[in-house]
Nucleic acid binder design. Structure first.
Lengths: 307, 307
DNA sequence: TGCATTGTGTAGATTGTCTACATGGACGTG
DNA sequence: CACGTCCATGTAGACAATCTACACAATGCA
């Protein structure tokens, strides 16, 4: 019945513990517990269940939480509407990004938005690409996935595609392959590779190369940080798969990029949001800025390669 | 921001005055006024405007009220969901009907529903067919309209069609036309008519008859109550247009019905609801009962005429 | 000019929600 | 196996929000 309480249930579904909900909503755990108790009494059936020292939702609880999300969406639409009437996007917007996307998009976005809209950015290196979990904490989550791989569909999150970035093969200057216009899977066998940490999405493409070429790649190192990988490549210690638009930032001209043919080699960069937050006017404004900046980046590179 | 306040604004849009809202929500007008004031302060722009001694919404106010309706709908969906979990349609349902529909459908509906679901019925003779106004007061409004005439579309109301009832020409026993299988517009010229009160929907069909036959009908009396009209017809004082399924209730066999050909002569019987109320499980249950009872009535008459 | 009606202020009561603190169970560890 | 930690949940009181009761101003109607 009461929206505040429903919202609390929804937060519990998202965050998994009463204390986390309390922390997120600036309340004491006791207050949260009491409100959930009231909700349960009103509902007339158990919504939560103790499990160990924690608390999990019953199936009824999950169902209610899901419809609570719908309520939150329509409520956010209402406040967005009146923000539009005032021409004033209220509140601040928080955003997490993985490093390369931030480096590529955020400076331009901040310039587009101007000083009126406060955008709080953070970067986070998602070890196991658990991007969706961040949507509880941040309004917008910049995430990347391989094309066709919808790893975060069906969780009830809003997904806005921003751009697709090709993944090229990065070579040191003077490498035997560096005078080629492009390279294929078979060209890459026998090379020493600088790989990414296990579980990173690039790995799928490396596997695809092995599959296509019918041989294993020799992986000398595994790093998570892209700048580190590049410095190894530049130093001649191996070659690596690198995103086209964000490579060679530190030492321009010392890293050679070659398109990879014969394999779908690109990543999707998307914005992930909880649906209610996606309705906020301020959030929508930031998303629009992200989209136009992404288009700008894609365009500027396509004209470069067209030369 | 606050749902309660939004709901108040929505009620104001529906009912048009603070006192009416106060009455409907079991509050004092002062409380309503204060809450609206708070909402306006939060919104940052005027939502209402004085007009005479009353209050009207500004365009911003209307827009907010409309999105408040969406919030109410999703909230109603949530409570309906948990009603389904408990298998218990909560609350009572109120219903208004015009007399003939009530006589035709309600006894059967009450039987279908059984004693668990409280259905509060009332009848109301809608002088100028202002059915939509009743949706503020009642959960379900049974209304009728001529076919094709969507007099209550676009007001944001939920409309559920229940049945279409043919309108026949009612004759006294022994009338010259009473041995015909059907009658056409031209047969009806020169007869004395018992008409309906001005503004009633049947009137359109009488006009259509005049148009088709190219002559005016002589209208000796004008009544609102159908039973009264019928008694006049039976007494041989004239003929009249009467709904097929609900005629001759009082004096069976003394009223002869003839289908009217050459003119679309039927009325739609529909249920009107505010969209949020339409979501309630209890309301949906009643609607289903109405639909099945309406189908039953239609079916039983079609087999009779097939004999 | 009364008189009813409409919306709105003010003061105080009432209700509901939150915090602070204490309790009890579940888990891991020395 | 006792110990500390973590988590959810009770209890009592503080606090905030909302409502009622009443008074008042403005408008429209007889």
């Amino acid at each position: 019945m009461d929206v505040q309480r429903l919202e609390l249930l929804r937060e519990l579904a998202d965050r998994g513990s009463v204390t986390a909900v309390a922390l997120a909503t600036h309340r004491t755990p006791s207050a949260v517990s009491q409100q959930l108790k009231v909700l349960e009494r009103e509902a007339g059936l158990p919504l939560t269940q103790r499990q160990g020292r924690g608390l999990v939702l019953t199936s009824a609880g999950r169902a209610l939480a899901r419809s609570a999300a719908d309520v939150a969406v329509s409520l956010a639409k209402a406040t967005a509407l009146w923000d539009e009437f005032r021409n004033h996007a209220s509140g601040e917007v928080s955003l997490v990004t993985f490093p390369t996307a931030g480096q590529m998009l955020l400076p331009g976005v901040i310039k587009i938005l101007g000083p009126d809209l406060l955008l709080n950015c953070a970067d986070e290196d998602p070890e196991l690409s658990d991007f969706p979990a961040f949507t509880a904490e941040y309004d917008i989550v910049l995430a990347h996935s391989m094309s066709g791989q919808l790893s975060w569909a069906g969780r009830g999150l809003t997904v806005v595609p921003l751009m697709t970035e090709p993944l090229d093969v990065g070579l040191p200057v003077g490498h035997p392959l560096s005078d080629r216009a492009w390279v294929g899977p078979r060209d890459l066998i026998g090379e020493t590779w600088i790989g990414v940490t296990d579980g990173y999405p690039f790995e799928r493409i490396l596997h695809a190369i092995e599959q296509e070429a019918g041989a294993r790649l020799s992986m000398s190192q595994r790093f998570a940080d892209l700048a580190l990988i590049e410095s190894f490549v530049i130093a001649g210690l191996g070659i690596a798969l690198v995103p086209r638009y964000t490579s060679g930032g530190g030492q321009p001209g010392r890293l050679v990029l070659k398109p990879l043919r014969g394999i779908e080699s690109q990543r999707q960069i998307v914005a992930l949001m909880r649906p209610d937050r996606a309705e906020r006017l301020a959030v929508r404004t930031v998303i629009q800025a992200l989209q136009s900046e992404a288009a700008k980046v894609e365009q500027s590179h396509s004209t470069v390669t067209a030369r």
